[in-house]
């Protein structure tokens, strides 16, 4: 496997990891008003692939944010207990949107590196075509 192919493999792993992150962020935003929902987070880790000699990025297990759920006072809600309140989700929209923006930026950077490697490989092949 040539350097440029390994480059594309590393960039593709980065894009896959950022896509997983943005999917979880989207799930969190969609469930921002679901009672009892805990926001999902994922960690990134480096994996050294011996067969391909690349340092790909992989997502770790999905974890739930263990911060406290927000207690919402709403006596009219069917879920409300004796004290007239129920537990909402612990999703903070500002945090999720900032996370999505960062994932988007990193995804685009990976895409740019992928595209550059592809162009370098094709101009290399262009030498043969002359």
């Amino acid at each position: 496997m040539s350097d440029l192919e390994r480059t594309m493999a590393a960039s593709a792993s980065g894009m896959a990891a950022q896509a997983a992150r943005i999917r979880l962020t989207t799930e969190n935003i969609a469930n921002a008003d679901t009672p009892g929902y805990r926001r999902k987070t994922v960690s990134f880790e480096a994996v050294l692939d011996d067969t391909r000699d690349t340092r790909a990025v992989a997502t770790g297990p999905v974890r739930l944010d263990r911060s406290e759920l927000v207690r919402i006072y709403d006596p009219g809600n069917p879920l409300a207990g004796a004290d007239g309140s129920y537990l909402g989700s612990n999703v903070d929209l500002v945090v999720e949107i900032a996370d999505a923006r960062e994932a988007n930026r990193s995804y685009e950077a990976n895409l740019k590196m992928f595209d550059q490697a592809r162009q370098m490989a094709s101009s290399l092949l262009g030498l043969l075509r002359r």
Partner: peptide, 21 residues
């Protein structure tokens, strides 16, 4: 050219790991 593609690989790995702790 070989140096450029080796360096490209290292930089692409850096970018892929832009958010890895």
């Amino acid at each position: 050219a070989a140096h450029a593609s080796a360096r490209q690989q290292v930089i692409a790995e850096n970018v892929a790991h832009a958010d890895t702790p």
